[in-house]
């Protein structure tokens, strides 16, 4: 990963999202906690989306380097 050392890996983010879905589905979280989980989920979702969008650029650069 380029820079952004503290950011978690895409695969871990996906796993976390799955966990959040499970936790919410069990449903014994309080309202505050639910909202906290929701916000975390949103953050992870945006991060993953951003990574998917950014991914295109990385390969372009690499392909140029290889030529």
């Amino acid at each position: 990963m380029q820079g952004e050392g503290e950011e978690i890996k895409f695969e871990d983010a996906l796993k976390k999202l799955e966990e959040i879905v499970n936790e919410l589905e069990v449903g014994n979280l309080g309202l505050e906690e639910t909202i906290k989980k929701f916000e975390e989920g949103m953050r992870l979702f945006k991060m993953c989306k951003k990574k998917i969008e950014e991914a295109e650029l990385k390969i372009e650069k690499l392909m140029e380097e290889l030529k």
């Binding site: 996906l14 999202l17 959040i20 879905v21 929701f38 979702f45 989306k49 998917i52």
Partner: peptide, 8 residues
């Protein structure tokens, strides 16, 4: 990803 966030 979309299905996760929709679910959440």
């Amino acid at each position: 990803l979309k299905s996760y966030i929709l679910r959440i």
